[in-house]
Design a protein around this nucleic acid. Sequence first.
DNA 1: CATTTATGACTGACTGGTCAGTCATTGTCA
DNA 2: TGACAATGACTGACCAGTCAGTCATAAATG
Lengths: 235, 235
Amino acid sequence: MTNEATKSARKSALKPADRRAGARAPASSKPKPASNRAERAAERRGAIIAAAMDEFIARGFAATRLDDIAKRAGVAKGTIYLHFKDKESMFEELIRTAIVPLVTRLWATPPQPGASVRDMVEGFAKTFIEEVAATRRGDLVRLIVAEGPRFPEVADFYYREVVSRGLAGMRALIELGIARGEIQHKNLARFPQIMVAPALIAVIWQSLFSRHAPLDALEMFRVHLDLIFGERRTA
Amino acid sequence: MTNEATKSARKSALKPADRRAGARAPASSKPKPASNRAERAAERRGAIIAAAMDEFIARGFAATRLDDIAKRAGVAKGTIYLHFKDKESMFEELIRTAIVPLVTRLWATPPQPGASVRDMVEGFAKTFIEEVAATRRGDLVRLIVAEGPRFPEVADFYYREVVSRGLAGMRALIELGIARGEIQHKNLARFPQIMVAPALIAVIWQSLFSRHAPLDALEMFRVHLDLIFGERRTA
DNA sequence: CATTTATGACTGACTGGTCAGTCATTGTCA
DNA sequence: TGACAATGACTGACCAGTCAGTCATAAATG
């Protein structure tokens, strides 16, 4: 048709890259009729986020290529820029959107009124180790440790949303334990970091040394709790 | 995929220009007079290592530019290649040469025969916190945590030379403590990581959060020791 | 309902800049 | 002076970010 002719006339002089229509075709055979436009956009955004997560975790910020993220997400590179301003803000937003549900999940521990402080801490640690240390989320923590100094905003956000809240909560728990007589060491409330330390060790260990020597993180944490609450277990 | 292949291909199919690095070695065992020339070469090498250290710590492996290292070392870029095969092996060698003296220094703690196990551990921690956590060396540890997964050889080396030895030594100390009756928790010997955990926390904290909230690492460690050895201090 | 027009999500070739690694040339010591 | 050390301009690969063009879908129209 005339239309056709005019259209191709303009750009036409180049490579046989015009089977454009065909190029997109392979995807067309997909059995996915994601009808709504907004839906598809959201799907794509999600795919980009997941892909970027994997790539950043595997390679770090600087060594990650946007081409690889695009390829992994099944999307053209330009599409990424429809959702994110640039690589850096993508990284920052990524971390933020990943941390929120993580924290939410961790604080979703059922606060059973009858439970001892030790049980609460142990349950918390169990969740953390199972949901974070033993999974890809753990690498997220390592990624923050790795890139934090170069992304002050990420470090700020992480401190504000995770570290300071987490430590405050832990301190409250410790004080409760002291008040109830479960914990003898009053000074512990001054350094809630101590309570949490083995959990962080576990995360790092999984990433770096699990292939050298596996670590039973939960068992380690229980031993640690024995130090704080006194021996209890028989295993 | 093509990218990946090309990249590694390039790497392994290098030109035979590599005996550079090896050429340096023979000098060491030779009865060569410490000429002005050799001295200067060693000096330059040291300057390059120091500069590279700073840059890698500040920016991470991928984002560090050799031009910057050269400039900081007061040397032309080509000179770097007289001492190191390429960026990657420079990084690995760097870590190795930095770790050895670090470990040496740490194990140089005077083993006073009359000291209690607690004193020994505390002295050790004091050295570590003062010499590592509070200095640029601490960032080296963070650097290893950050880049370890991408440099398996570095992680291997670190595990072999630092982690496994350190833990073995700590375990021996714990067992001594148990034998002497200073430590009640026998299970602690199964997880020497627990003894060390707050020290690692301190390193990470200094790098990421010291500007949000300063941490008295030594005091924290003392409180931690109170958990293990029982209260002792009056502060 | 069928057809035309408008929209904007999506694409990927392309650009401009960056940087690891090279090597012909220049400098320096023994 | 001969041998080796040092230099830094240069090369080629690589990659973040752009934008002209495409096309499926939605809105408007008859």
